[in-house]
């Protein structure tokens, strides 16, 4: 393979790419929303893994600190979104007894 040859950074970056693929597969295939939220988290961690791996500069001097900071921020943002998604999903299950999003007519809820 061309490019940086097979050192561990590239290996992890490729793993990140495959993780994203797995996550996308899960996001598309499943109708159950909790599994889609899980898939969303897998994709997120895949992207971050790739981000970190691409910033890895050899065994001695670690990963480029800016991506690390961004990833920590990204993880917290991902958690916030997951928390809201889960809360919405639970409320949807309580209201309508379903955990999927069938593509039927838009919500009939009146405003207010």
């Amino acid at each position: 393979m061309s490019g940086a040859g097979l050192d561990s950074a590239t290996l992890f970056a490729l793993t990140g790419a495959i993780l994203i693929g797995i996550g996308v597969y899960g996001f598309i295939v499943h109708a159950h929303l909790l599994r889609r939220i899980l898939a969303f988290n897998v994709i997120g961690s895949g992207i971050f893994l790739m981000f970190g791996a691409l910033g890895f500069r050899g065994a001695g001097n670690g990963t480029d600190p800016v991506p690390q900071a961004l990833i920590i921020t990204g993880i917290v943002v991902a958690l916030s979104l997951t928390a809201l998604a889960v809360a919405l999903l639970v409320k949807l299950a309580e209201e309508e007894g379903g955990a999927t999003l069938p593509e039927e007519q838009p919500g009939r809820g009146e405003a207010e």
Partner: peptide, 8 residues
């Protein structure tokens, strides 16, 4: 307004 719309 609507949980389903928010989730989508």
């Amino acid at each position: 307004g609507s949980t389903r719309a928010a989730l989508r």
